[in-house]
Design a protein around this nucleic acid. Structure first.
Lengths: 380, 380
DNA sequence: CTGAAAGCGCTTACAG
DNA sequence: CTGAAAGCGCTTACAG
């Protein structure tokens, strides 16, 4: 309610004359100083807030950044004036002076995906709660693109970085190390990883789902997977399947592990190819690298004259919203992606508060969700 | 290949002695200047590049920002040195000096959605191609949250802003106007909108899909829609349906326009409620506010003993990838979301290049995609 | 608790 | 085409 620039009636605090005038005489004399004119941004600056509130710029800055160090009365006055003047602090000035940008970055493979969208949402919320802005970059599952995004973020002065998976160019890790920049690897988790991981063990997860199928009695398996290139998570998944099968004395035959884009169509085509052999030879269980592939396969099954789980079993991974709504309901695994994002953000915040020291990794464990699409193999 | 700091053998260009030493005497004498020590960031700075290349800071800056103004020889030398030193320009310093941040912002309702993810992807690509970084913020369909995100972006110094829809607090538009900040409204388009819109006319689109159903002979309609609050797009969609029906002398009866979250479950529950009446009275056509709702309804239909299009017709909006893969394939409308994002980015870039002048709006037209789920009403 | 002023790392008007 | 230096809008070590 106090008018901007108005001094308190009490006039306390030992403040001198209003400095509004003194500031005018800032052209040094006797030195033939060349006056440059630089277009000021035209926006209200901290400087003007200070003048209007009758305090120094230091005090205005402190009122906002270290409120405890400023007397109640002055703090309130500064806030009121800043408000009245609609002052918005210039982030660049702040960053330059403090060498803190309050920006963190997250690099994910793709936005178009419930899984990563959820992680980002959570990260953003936690970061915002601590005064940090989150930069988001998409690699489109391409290592080189991911590196480019990371470099752009470094140039922007991010103070911490999160990225999905640990398969990234050595250059990235070097740059991070060189700058002592905190980072976390999200989504992936390996007990022996050199990085701070917040995620789950993809290999263990796929051993689990494979075991589920083995326990149901399946012996002939087929796989439909996303590309392995640049993707440690997919690699670990395939390894998990193969190891679990090997432990049971089994293996996926040549030509029964189909690799393609992680799309609905690839899932559909994959199933058609896997089922294109005499019934006695067909896989009875199909493990898909994610729900999307499984959903595509499921949608295609009727056209092949097949249905799960009577004619074959099939599993996904992710537990997308739609996976449990469609019929037959998909057997899959679910990860708490919101938690991954939130925890990753907390780890980063912790590191930033501890001189960049790496935070403790955190393993989340996916749940196996057995629904309609997995059952005992049909006797042939 | 040239060693950092090494001068060219030819020594051309009239360069004086290497300035490596002259730079040391920068403590002014005879003035009792107090030396402050401020932790330098520890990173390589433009200053060091200049010294190593034997040129002024101005020249280094120009070499990167206005390469034409620098001689070939010096430019190459500067590049080589900068490279060897791994110099990464400090964005804050640059922003402060030039009052250009090269940051643009985009605010969308949610990340978790093919539609917006695609727009963002396209925007980001176009922006990156022009040296701009894209800030992304999610409002979660909440006006107040959207405003908060926008304010955070202003504080970060975004030079342009894109946001979905035109239903936003007046405060937002005032702030934009006050700063002369270019912006575009994405997704929505109205011929008489005061804003630069890049999107489609939601009302016209839903008139179109309603007409399709009318032409098939439907006379009893039901609606399953997302919430109208804070959402001009949804409002326009409902208006489109109602106007088209009114033109045909029809109306959606009380209780047959169901509003809820735009989820699969809401779609399922919606269909159950709409179909909960004697067959002769049930709607024969159900218009959904988006594909997700329609997909949920479709998934639920078998449990109701119904199937489309024999027992009822149903339509969506968005043409999600899965909508055409599932059986029955959904009748829906498709918008080129990639184009919306790309064009929005170009408009913003254009505005920034033209002193913030508003760009021309651009209307995209959605395609009606007639598939399995719409057919003539079943005779009862 | 408060202020005067240097400094953060760039860009750019000015002068040559 | 190039350089010397002021200035962008803040923060903070120093001094009181």
């Amino acid at each position: 309610m106090r008018a901007p620039g108005g001094r308190t009636p009490q006039g306390g605090g030992g403040s001198q004359e209003p400095p509004a005038d003194t500031a005018a005489g800032d052209a040094k004399r006797g030195d033939a100083v060349v006056r440059r004119t630089r277009g000021s941004s035209g926006k209200v600056k901290l400087d003007e807030v200070a003048r209007a509130a009758g305090v120094s710029t230091a005090t205005v800055s402190r009122a906002f950044n270290e409120p405890d160090k400023v007397s109640d009365e002055i703090r309130e006055r500064v806030f009121a004036v800043a408000n009245a003047l609609h002052w918005i602090p210039n982030a660049a000035g702040r960053a330059l002076a403090s060498s803190r940008t309050h920006i963190a970055g997250a690099i994910i493979p793709t936005l178009d995906n419930e899984v990563f969208a959820r992680q980002i949402n959570a990260m953003q919320a936690v970061m915002a709660g601590h005064g940090y802005t989150l930069f988001i970059g998409c690699s489109n599952y391409d290592q080189a693109e991911g590196l480019k995004q990371a470099q752009a973020m470094l140039a922007r002065g991010v103070e911490a970085l999160a990225f999905a998976g640990e398969r990234h160019p050595a250059e990235l890790f070097q740059a991070l190390k060189a700058r002592g920049l905190p980072y976390v690897v999200t989504y992936s988790y390996r007990a022996d990883s050199p990085h701070c991981c917040v995620g789950f063990d993809n290999k263990v997860a796929f051993r689990r789902i494979t075991r589920h199928l083995l326990e149901l009695g399946h012996r002939r398996f087929g796989i439909i997977s996303q590309p392995v290139a640049d993707n440690d998570r997919v690699e670990a998944r395939l390894a998990g399947i193969n190891e679990e099968l090997a432990d049971a004395g089994l293996a996926v035959p040549e030509g029964r592990c189909l690799i393609g884009p992680g799309t609905l169509d690839a899932g559909a085509q994959g199933l058609a190819r896997l089922m294109d052999s005499p019934k006695a030879d067909r896989p009875t269980a199909v493990i898909c690298g994610n729900d999307n592939l499984a959903l595509g396969a499921l949608a295609c099954a009727p056209f092949l004259g097949l249905r799960a789980p009577d004619d074959f079993s099939i599993t996904g991974f992710d537990d997308l919203a739609i996976s449990s709504r469609l019929s037959p309901r998909l057997t899959t695994m679910r990860v708490d992606n919101h938690a991954i994002g939130a925890i990753a953000a907390e780890k980063l915040l912790w590191s930033m508060g501890h001189k960049g020291k790496a935070a403790e990794p955190r393993e989340l464990v996916p749940d196996l969700i057995v629904r309609d699409t997995s059952g005992p193999p049909s006797g042939d």
